[in-house]
Design a protein around this nucleic acid. Structure first.
Lengths: 342, 342
DNA sequence: GTTAGCACTCTACAAGGTCGAGTGCTAACA
DNA sequence: TGTTAGCACTCGACCTTGTAGAGTGCTAAC
């Protein structure tokens, strides 16, 4: 365990490095932070801290920068949990009120808010629809040969598609199919709609094989639609302002990675425990972001975790601020979503 | 009008500059292109071309680069219209077949295809719903206090929203409102649904003022939804590979501009005439892209122009390739969309 | 345990020099 | 008259060199 002075010095290094992005030397610390000791003493302490692995040097005679271990200690032991100010909270709530009309807009604007406040990339993973239940499907008239298939979930999520009416079927036939499927599947979660149930339906409808094939096809289509979860990204251009990305090759490879949306979704999904968690540098499993840190938080509707929001940036990020914002989202995003009737 | 040799030299300069991004000198032209004359002669011709404004010099003793006027001449008079190869066309068609299931995916993938093939930013402006007609709206049951409002257009575009049932109204009342509105508005284009008509409806429904207020509110909501056109962007990271964007400030201001989606949508909307058009450098009205060129093309469904696709990049772009791809989209995107029943 | 002093290291930056590509001009040539 | 070779000149790219400044580790004194 570090003694008080070492902790102060480490804190000074991390704080300064976060705000300036420059390696910190002993004299700078002595000047800026009133620790009551001379630079020489600080140098000795810094040598110890380096030996212990909390800070590192890019080359002889450069200042020190925090290591991943240093950031970890900073986040766990040095950072006092801060809350967002009343003013900031009011600002955010107002933003939601003004800019969101659709549910999708809530996600979009959440991504924007997060990236704006934290000056980093934000990720918002929307509720996995597979976790909600099938309510009913319905065919709406369109024209002689086409109809609109609408699938409704218990959360009020609606998906639709214009499809050809199979030859030989009347609109009434479609209504019958819909009724039958609704009777059997209504209330089941999409996760539980398995092939076995679909087979059962097939058996029950053996009277008309063609008709079933059609129905099955439509349902499959609906399932594909429903399972399609989405990831909202915000502030990708924020990267360009960060000095660690002044090298354009790095930016490029990073942005290319971001486009592989499913990868990111995977990283986020890993979080099962509720709350705000911080992953620093090489603690990240995915190699593309090993010199980055990610702070993520779940959000809940009616107490149930439905999605994840996260902020991704260089390890040199303002953990205090980022964590407080995500703490806020963790506690309030569900409420906002509920207002928009998801 | 330029004589044949000047044209050859200008063509050589533009071609070389497009592929190398380096200013072209007289000796390079003499070496690479067999014009049958010495560098000295080419130098004289180049001096003429510069005087005429087709090429310019960054500083004494640098090679020449094409000016906007030079590119314009190149596009109008030097570029032989090329078609995409059979192989490329097959590749694209296959891509659509494999990757698109939804209409939205068609737009998304179109943006991807364009940016991939041309190595530039692509823009896809989706059909402006205001140009299509209101078909009907319908209320679907959800629960005791909420209902799903579905608005259908004649093109098969469906929008929905979960709304609260106003207190005092039954589901049957809603059905009545829907029927009435449908009777009056069905077949009208969204552009033509003016306040005057809404007033008329109000008069006809004076029997129940509250009910009308509700209906009006819902319709307004629907209109807001419907008018919300979308812009799909592709290949924003391609920028980073272009040498003209090696300066990170430039990239940043450019990307920031791209985020102002409505601005871009405005630029695209200006095109009223059908076909592929090229806007070079300062021909662009919008100052943010005055050192860029944009090639845009309309696409049609059943002969009617419904949207625009475009490629945006540095003035030094491969106009031949970009134009051939957009020509293809101009002719075929409508077909693809039709397959997905929009 | 703390501090001052000192020699040392390394980067960033500016100044100067060289190289090469490219030009314009002129005079000679077909 | 159009084309070409030759030449002096210009300018950016790149390398080298020197210097200033920040920072370090070590040692001896307090």
């Amino acid at each position: 365990m570090l003694d008080k002075r070492k902790r102060s010095i480490l804190q000074a290094i991390v704080d300064d490095y976060i705000s300036t992005a420059e390696p910190i030397g002993s004299r700078t610390i002595a000047r800026k932070h009133d620790l009551g000791v001379s630079p020489a003493t600080i140098r000795n302490e810094m040598a110890d801290l380096e030996l212990l692995g909390y800070i590192e040097q890019l080359h002889t005679s450069s200042g020190r920068i925090p290591s991943a271990k240093g950031y970890r200690f900073y986040v766990d032991s040095l950072l006092s949990p801060t809350q967002m100010s009343e003013r900031e909270i009011a600002l955010i709530k107002n933003w939601y009120q003004e800019k969101t009309r659709h549910v999708e807009e809530v996600f979009q604007e959440t991504a924007k808010i997060l990236s704006k406040i934290t000056s980093n990339i934000s990720l918002v993973l929307v509720p996995q629809v597979t976790q909600c239940a099938f309510k009913y499907l319905k065919f709406l008239p369109f024209d002689d040969c086409r109809t609109i298939l609408v699938v409704v979930t218990d959360t009020g999520f609606v998906e639709n598609k214009v499809i050809d009416i199979p030859t030989g079927l009347s609109f009434n036939d479609l209504q019958r199919i819909a009724e039958h499927i609704n009777r059997r599947l209504s209330g089941l979660s999409f996760e539980n709609i398995e092939l076995s149930i679909l087979r059962e339906i097939q058996n029950e409808m053996l009277i008309d094989v063609d008709l079933f094939e059609t129905a099955l096809g439509i349902l499959k289509q609906a399932l594909v639609v429903e399972k399609n979860e989405r990831l909202y990204l915000g502030g990708t251009t924020q990267l360009l302002s960060q000095p660690e990305f002044k090298n354009i090759e790095k930016v490029k490879s990073f942005l290319d990675m971001l486009e592989e949306e499913h990868l990111l979704a995977n990283i986020l999904q890993k979080q099962k425990n509720d709350g705000v968690i911080v992953t620093i540098g090489d603690e990240n499993k995915y190699s593309g972001i090993q010199d980055c840190s990610m702070v993520q938080a779940t959000y809940r509707i009616d107490g149930q975790v439905v999605g994840t929001v996260a902020v991704l940036g260089p390890t040199r990020m303002d953990y205090g601020k980022v964590m407080s914002v995500l703490e806020f989202m963790h506690n309030h995003l569900g409420e906002v979503l509920k207002k928009y009737k998801i």
